[in-house]
């Protein structure tokens, strides 16, 4: 299996993903799964500027991702599947249970959310959605960088 990280991060492609995780994991591709970004040429151009040479950045809608996930896993390169929100990652897990280890890397403050970690803010509904993911077989942890401690979902209540 060469998808080495399934990450939820509302900043999408940025330094923590490309450098913080990308270098130690020696990634060859990032699959950015987001229906809105998939239709935005200027955002795609911007995110392309963020990836180093030798790393392919793939843009996919949820539907395209569900089609392509088996191929990403079979890829000889190591890759990251990246979504901006829990809902998108949950949709991937629901249709493809092999999306089973989910990293919360950055979910920031918005009205209705409360701080669970300095980089993870969740509404009660989002927390329930994550618990539901675990109940259906996924492992959900929060960890912004490989050098920090991985925090299990049960500690985020």
């Amino acid at each position: 299996m060469t998808v080495v990280l399934h990450r939820v991060d509302d900043r999408l492609v940025h330094g923590q993903v490309v450098i913080g995780w990308g270098r130690p994991l020696d990634i060859g591709f990032i699959a950015l799964v987001d229906d809105q970004v998939r239709t935005s040429d200027w955002e795609q151009d911007l995110y392309r500027m963020s990836v180093p040479e030798g790393v392919e950045l793939i843009f996919a809608s949820v539907r395209e991702a569900l089609r392509d996930l088996p191929g990403w896993r079979a890829d000889v390169r190591r890759g990251i599947v990246l979504t901006a929100d829990i809902e998108t990652m949950a949709a991937l897990h629901k249709a493809d249970p092999a999306v089973d280890r989910i990293n919360l890397g950055g979910i920031h403050h918005r009205p209705g959310r409360t701080e669970r970690l300095p980089y993870v803010y969740l509404t009660d509904e989002e927390l329930a959605q994550l618990r539901s993911l675990e109940a259906s077989g996924a492992t959900v942890t929060a960890q912004d960088l490989p050098t920090t401690t991985s925090v299990p979902l049960r500690s985020l209540a």
């Binding site: 900043r11 492609v13 940025h14 330094g15 490309v18 200027w42 955002e43 911007l46 500027m49 963020s50």
Partner: peptide, 12 residues
């Protein structure tokens, strides 16, 4: 600061 990432995204 960087020619990529969240700061540039917000500025653009």
């Amino acid at each position: 600061d960087m020619p990529s990432g969240s700061c540039l995204f917000g500025a653009l």
